[in-house]
Design a protein around this nucleic acid. Sequence first.
DNA 1: ATTTAGCACTCGGACGATAAGAGTGCTAAC
DNA 2: GTTAGCACTCTTATCGTCCGAGTGCTAAAT
Lengths: 340, 340
Amino acid sequence: MLSKRQLLILQVIIDEFIQTAQPIGSRAISKKDEVTFSPATIRNEMADLEEMGFIEKTHSSSGRVPSEKGYRFYVDHLLSPFHLSKTEMHVISNTFEEEMLEFEQVVQKSAKILSELTNYTSIILGPKVYETTLKQLEIIQLSPHLAVAILVTNTGHVEHRSFSIPTEIEPSDLEKLVNMLNERLKNVPIIHLHDRLKKELTVLMHKYMNDFDLAYQYLKAALFDEQPVQLYVSGITNILLQPEFKDVSKIHSLYSAMEQEDAMADMLRSYKNGIHVSIGQENIMDEMQDCSLITANYSLGNQQLGTIALLGPTRMEYARVISLLHALSNRMSHTFHSWF
Amino acid sequence: MLSKRQLLILQVIIDEFIQTAQPIGSRAISKKDEVTFSPATIRNEMADLEEMGFIEKTHSSSGRVPSEKGYRFYVDHLLSPFHLSKTEMHVISNTFEEEMLEFEQVVQKSAKILSELTNYTSIILGPKVYETTLKQLEIIQLSPHLAVAILVTNTGHVEHRSFSIPTEIEPSDLEKLVNMLNERLKNVPIIHLHDRLKKELTVLMHKYMNDFDLAYQYLKAALFDEQPVQLYVSGITNILLQPEFKDVSKIHSLYSAMEQEDAMADMLRSYKNGIHVSIGQENIMDEMQDCSLITANYSLGNQQLGTIALLGPTRMEYARVISLLHALSNRMSHTFHSWF
DNA sequence: ATTTAGCACTCGGACGATAAGAGTGCTAAC
DNA sequence: GTTAGCACTCTTATCGTCCGAGTGCTAAAT
């Protein structure tokens, strides 16, 4: 167990290191107002803290630097509640007071705010559409053999996909098909759409259309194949400003990782229910071992829609970032809620 | 005027420097098979080439490095026609043999091919929709006060935008409006859509709708306000592999510039008709003064749709990149042509 | 029994000297 | 006109030295 004095010293070391990125020595600690004891005492305590693994030396006679275990302890036990500044609250409020009517717009702006306020990199996983319901289906023929299928959800989300019309299918059939599907599939949750589509088609199509299987295959492809993940990244260049990334090879490996959108999306999806902090090696992705990732979720009612995250060095302003993510995810959820 | 020998030496210097990124000395040049004269002779010629500004020293006793003027001359006069390797042609062919039905898909894959084959960063300006014509307009009501407007062009391009329905407008009016607009605006070029919309509305709306101005304002906003530019960037991390970018501050300024999507798009738009090479200071954007940008256009018939570009260090494989851009822009144009 | 002052010790970073190597320009010979 | 030879220049790497920041330990002070 850590003594009160050790807690204080650990806190000072981490707070200070987060600001300066420089190893902290006993003398510097003793100069802090809240610290009343001498450098020698502090050195003794630091030796203990090091033995327990909370802090490290960069070389045998250097000041101390927080270890990952130290950050973990700091995040779990030492975070003082952080109050956002007036400016920060204003930036958020002003942005959300503009009229926004689309998910994408809200998400994009949120990413921007986050990266601008923190100088870290923000990553937001766009809302998944699978909990929404079908509002309307359209198939618009562009040329004899080309058509575009459009799917609109109750949330105003629009997906579209071009597909080639098999020669066996008549344009008039196509129209009939769409009308029937709209009648029968309206308000069906998108997540059930695939099954329902198959079912409805089985029951109905034989009499109207020559080639059921083909129509099904094409519609299925048009509507359900590999919807691209939506990842909104803002402020990637902020990483370059951090002194821990003065090494180009580190930048390269991190940026390469971020180019893998699918892996990133999977990772973000895995963080559910509230705020998560992954420090250094705790991160799932190897390339992020020098970083911390803080995530929060935004939702519509009880349904979690997506994840917002901030990526920075392990030496991160945890308190402020957590408050910001909290405020912003609430604000996003609130906005979405107000639409329905 | 440059002598034959000077041309040869200049060519060897640039070719070699493009490979190695190291200053080239007289001895290295003399070892090349095509060079038959001694280092001393070469040194004399190099002194002349330097005086004329085609090459430079990095310090008083270093080998020579091409100047921007040197690269310019090289690109204008010394480029030997470059034949793409079998592998390169295969990569392109294989990609384009997959069924692709949407502009976006073609453009995205092209960007990927380019960056992968060259190890530079590819930037593609998505096709502008303004030369296409309206295929269909849809307005789908989501809730009493919210609707989404969808615009489909003859090329299968889909734009959509949510908007709030002014309380003065009845849902039935909305439907009438869409029907009428579809009747009257079908096949109108998108570029004229705005004017035509205004005209048609002026003539027709008064009798059907209470509030013409309001409807017009909303529709206009829904359909024409700030369509986001579409910029497809691939292989940004490739830049990090270039030895000229071992300095983080250079990376930062370049990446920051690339985050300005609007400025980038404007720049790319300004290159029309064939292949353009901007070397170092010739670049419009200050942040690209250490880079070269090579652009080509892709088209549909006679209509140029967009620009594909490669960004790399001034020490770029110009011949190969130009051939690749040529091949790829043709291939893209061809694919688009085959759709219509 | 803590806490602190004092002190020897360690290590990194900055500085300077030195040596090696690559490359040049110039001169004189071919 | 071309080339060999050579003195000179500049970069880079390596090594020794010095300084300062910071530590750990011991002994004195509280």
